[in-house]
């Protein structure tokens, strides 16, 4: 496999294509067809609204709509059968009206829908979308995995206090932050 690499030291913002199947690395910048990452205003379409609606049940936290739009676009572009799975999840929720994610996951009838739901949850927590052959990085500091410990643990590269402003004190493990 040929190495295809820019001579620029800059890694392209948010979109990385990783060739994981050979000894060499394919590591280059790729624009997705959704082209949502140019920094312009993002507009929410029907699919995006459906994605946010499904996400709000799957992930019981405050969700950032801009990140949701970008995540949905990356999933449409890179995750096989995503639009169909999203449609099925939305229909199931509409019909069964589960009270929370626990009830929904218990009730989902097949593995592929459970996996689709799990991959949506994972994208919100990691800030990245695992596609068939790509990983799309959507957000860093807004990834929900950091919120779970935001009362004590640093988001690497972001300061949590100031010069010598930290101590050995830590809050109780059981005290989950609200986010």
């Amino acid at each position: 496999m040929r190495i295809s690499r820019s001579t620029s030291p800059r890694i392209g913002r948010r979109e990385l294509l990783l060739g994981m199947s050979s000894l060499s690395a394919l590591f280059c910048v790729q624009a997705t067809r959704a082209a949502t990452l140019s920094g312009g205003a993002l507009r929410s379409g029907v699919v995006h609204q459906k994605f946010m609606s499904v996400s709000s049940l799957l992930v019981p936290h405050k969700l950032n709509e801009t990140i949701g739009i970008r995540t949905a676009d990356a999933m449409i572009a890179t995750v096989p059968d995503f639009p169909e799975h999203l449609e099925q999840l939305a229909s199931f929720i509409e019909a069964k009206k589960p009270a929370d994610v626990e009830e929904l996951m218990e009730a989902l009838p097949d593995v592929s829908l459970k996996n689709a739901a799990q991959s949506i949850i994972e994208s919100w927590y990691t800030g990245a979308v695992q596609g068939a052959s790509t990983i799309s990085v959507i957000s860093y500091e807004e990834a929900l995995m950091f919120k779970v410990t935001s009362d004590v643990m640093t988001i690497p590269s972001y300061a949590i206090s100031g010069p010598n402003g930290w101590t050995a004190d830590a809050p109780p493990l059981s005290q989950l932050p609200i986010f």
């Binding site: 800059r10 890694i11 392209g12 990085v137 590269s157």
Partner: peptide, 12 residues
């Protein structure tokens, strides 16, 4: 540039 490179990496 290096800081952004780091933040833009896939989590793994």
């Amino acid at each position: 540039t290096i800081v952004e490179n780091f933040r833009n990496l896939p989590p793994s």
